[in-house]
């Protein structure tokens, strides 16, 4: 690099725009490989003609020095390709697009908006990467080896990038067994907040404007959209809205076995049981308040909700009325 006679350290005032512009142009010419002796002589004359030219050139030298670690380095070509790669415009565009999609999803549509529509999640679920229909369950493997079981009427979006593995639960319920990847943290977003699992097996469920989390292995860090946080260790569960995080309690093992097609009832009110069955069964399932508080025990096949209903009918004082295939109601036995 051509050095000028600049003894002073940082100049105290900013050189004029003209001086800076000329310094940049001189630099571009002198280093181009095409500068002649006459050019160099002219540059010397330019430097000598004004103090602020020397000041401006001082900056050129300072900036050039930042490249010195590359200049003498055998890996400099590799370094430059890394720089180019990091600057690839397509990568930038992709990020912008993702940004817009995220904004649309969360900002314009709003989570609250679609969750109150009669067919929740349909609009979002159609755009999701993985989804199940009502009554359907599915197990998938993500590209990093993470196992995800999708429960009935579930939709998730996958956004795996260089820095992180992000899943968005759009509707329904998932059970996740994360694969380890020390370089890319895993996280699950729900409309109410985010979950940061650490080597875990856990379930996440969206229900009536709340996120339910239960951890079976490892730990999960919960952060609500409002910034509240808690750490759930194995065997613990909680639920939260955007603003409020419930107390951590002992995890209900029933929240995990659905992945094996089983609905486990351990002394739960029939009303809760029916609410669960509704998730797996298209159509209307009514429950008479007179039997809503009956207690339910046992394991039921959730892949076949009609059979589960028949089983309930055989052990409890209830009658299942099939008015139409899509309209069933549970009433007291007469």
């Amino acid at each position: 690099m051509t050095k000028a006679n600049t003894s002073r350290s940082t100049p105290l005032s900013e050189p004029s725009h003209q001086a800076m512009e000329q310094a940049a142009e001189w630099f571009a010419l002198l280093r181009s490989g095409e500068a002649s002796d006459a050019d160099r002589a002219q540059w010397q004359a330019w430097l000598a003609s004004a103090r602020e030219n020397v000041d401006a050139w001082h900056y050129v030298e300072r900036i050039s020095r930042r490249f010195e670690p590359l200049q003498g380095n055998p890996a400099r070509r590799a370094a430059v390709s890394a720089f180019q790669r990091a600057n690839e415009p397509c990568l930038k565009r992709r990020e912008t697009l993702l940004g817009i999609v995220t904004l649309l999803g969360v900002g314009v549509l709003g989570w609250g908006c679609w969750s109150h529509t009669p067919l929740p999640g349909i609009a979002m679920a159609r755009r999701a990467d993985h989804r199940t229909a009502t009554g359907e369950q599915r197990e998938i493997f993500l590209s990093d080896g993470t196992r995800v079981w999708l429960n009935t009427a579930t939709a998730i979006s996958e956004d795996f990038s260089i820095g992180q593995r992000r899943l968005r639960l759009v509707a329904g319920e998932i059970l996740i067994q994360t694969a380890s990847d020390p370089l890319r943290p895993f996280l699950v977003d729900t409309p109410q907040g985010s979950l940061y699992p650490i080597g875990t097996r856990f379930t996440v469920r969206l229900d009536r404007g709340e996120t339910f989390v239960a951890v079976y292995e490892g730990a999960v860090e919960v952060i609500t959209a409002g910034g509240e946080g808690a750490t759930l260790s194995a065997g613990k569960q909680t639920h939260f809205t955007e603003r409020a995080l419930a107390f951590v309690e002992v995890a209900d093992p029933a929240r995990q076995v659905w992945s094996q097609g089983i609905l486990l009832a351990d002394n739960i009110p029939l009303a809760d049981m029916v609410r669960e069955l509704r998730r797996y069964r298209p159509g209307h399932l009514g429950l008479s308040p007179e039997v809503a508080d009956l207690r339910v025990f046992g394991s039921y096949p959730i892949n076949d909700p009609d059979r589960a209903l028949a089983m309930l009918e055989s052990v409890m004082p209830i009658r299942v009325h099939r008015r139409m295939s899509w309209w069933v109601s549970i009433e007291p036995e007469r």
């Binding site: 800076m20 310094a23 940049a24 630099f27």
Partner: peptide, 22 residues
């Protein structure tokens, strides 16, 4: 074009540095 790019980038850096120094 290369010459223009280099001059433009250098001018940008000079102004950035000069502003910071001030």
């Amino acid at each position: 074009m290369v010459r223009k790019y280099v001059a433009r980038a250098m001018l940008y850096c000079i102004r950035l540095d000069a502003r910071q120094a001030v």
